[in-house]
Amino acid sequence: MGFKLLSKLLVYLTASIMAIASPLAFSVDSSGEYPTVSEIPVGEVRLYQIADGVWSHIATQSFDGAVYPSNGLIVRDGDELLLIDTAWGAKNTAALLAEIEKQIGLPVTRAVSTHFHDDRVGGVDVLRAAGVATYASPSTRRLAEVEGNEIPTHSLEGLSSSGDAVRFGPVELFYPGAAHSTDNLIVYVPSASVLYGGCAIYELSRTSAGNVADADLAEWPTSIERIQQHYPEAQFVIPGHGLPGGLDLLKHTTNVVKAHTNRSVVE
């Protein structure tokens, strides 16, 4: 069995187990497998329904001669939608809004960016022009300005110390501490036991640490421990890039980060 097929099978099995364990909360999309990078042309966006009122959005972007996937989250909030992270750029984010209108038909009224990198804030200006209120932590807003990236308009308070959590509509926002970046936030959907790890969490097929220019490698494993301790009931975990899975993604990420750190020390 090929690795790609095995990865998709694991996603399907995880979703099936969740649907059985929580039949009222989960209505997993039966329309197909989780979209992969090879299936999404740059400039297009796919939506994948995880649970009743919960979707991931998947886009792709060219970077350094390669094409990478990027995940975000959409959560229903009454007759409105909360968006977590842009679709990595203005063109993708405009396509995301169009796809949401086509498939869901509810307005996106608020959006949260989970850290300051372009795959999370690139497209904020498109959201703002569409009347979406954009939010991020003060740290993310400051770092985005320093980096020359787009800056969300509103500040999220109460997320300055490791372990801080605040309720934001249908989700809980959690600051686990520094990891992929010093400002990275985690998003949890309690009604569906869905954990969105953003770039602080890796997919299972990833074996290298990737972009760690703004990471705190020493603190990252401790931050992941905080996530595990705060959300032990999480059933569906979405990484910032690639295929979702279960809580095993947290341990896998820790292993990859520690291996990278150990290699760096040896070198």
Rank of each mutant, 00 (worst) to 15 (best):
N211T: 09
A165C: 07
I151R: 04
A19L: 15
Y231W: 04
L159Q: 00
A215R: 04
I227H: 02
G197L: 01
I104K: 01
D164L: 06
G72Y: 04
S208L: 11
G163N: 08
H57M: 01
G245D: 05
Q229C: 03
V187H: 02
A90N: 09
G65E: 11
L82Q: 01
D214Y: 06
S223N: 01
D119H: 02
A51Y: 08
A21H: 12
C199T: 02
S137G: 04
L217E: 05
Y34P: 08
A95Y: 15
A59S: 15
N92K: 05
T253V: 00
R206T: 15
N262A: 13
S160M: 12
N184G: 02
S223A: 10
L143W: 06
I201E: 02
W220M: 01
S162M: 10
S7R: 09
S31Y: 12
L185K: 01
P107Q: 12
V265H: 11
D118W: 04
P69H: 15
P35I: 08
Q49K: 13
A129F: 08
R167N: 12
N92F: 00
A213R: 11
K251P: 14
E225F: 11
A144M: 03
S191C: 05
S193P: 04
F174T: 01
D52T: 11
R263N: 15
T261D: 12
L73H: 04
A51G: 09
P69D: 15
N211W: 07
F3H: 07
P152S: 05
V75N: 02
I74L: 08
V54Q: 02
A209R: 09
T109L: 09
L156N: 01
D29L: 09
N262S: 12
G169F: 06
V266L: 14
R128H: 12
I50K: 03
L24A: 12
E172S: 04
W55I: 01
S155Q: 14
L204S: 12
F26E: 15
G123I: 03
R263W: 10
G245Q: 02
N149E: 08
R110H: 11
E80P: 01
D52C: 06
R76S: 12
N262R: 11
K4I: 13
A19W: 15
K102M: 13
S264D: 13
G53L: 07
S161D: 13
I151V: 13
S38Q: 09
V171C: 02
S208N: 15
K8H: 07
S70C: 04
L204N: 10
H252G: 01
G169P: 06
E145A: 14
D216M: 06
R128I: 11
R167P: 11
V171P: 02
F63N: 11
A215L: 04
Q61H: 07
S38Y: 12
G123A: 03
Y202P: 05
G32D: 10
H230Q: 13
L83K: 00
L127D: 03
G163E: 07
S27Q: 14
E147N: 15
A25N: 14
G89Y: 05
Y34G: 08
T222M: 12
T93A: 03
N92E: 04
V54M: 06
Y202N: 07
S162H: 14
D183Y: 05
W55C: 04
L6R: 09
L250E: 02
G198H: 04
A111K: 02
P41S: 13
A90D: 14
I84V: 11
S30N: 14
V256Y: 02
V75W: 01
M18T: 12
G32I: 09
I104R: 00
Y231M: 02
T60K: 09
V45S: 06
G242A: 04
P107N: 11
T153C: 05
A144S: 08
A19K: 15
G246K: 11
N149H: 10
L47D: 03
L195I: 08
V67C: 07
V194Q: 00
F236G: 04
Y48D: 07
K251H: 12
T222V: 11
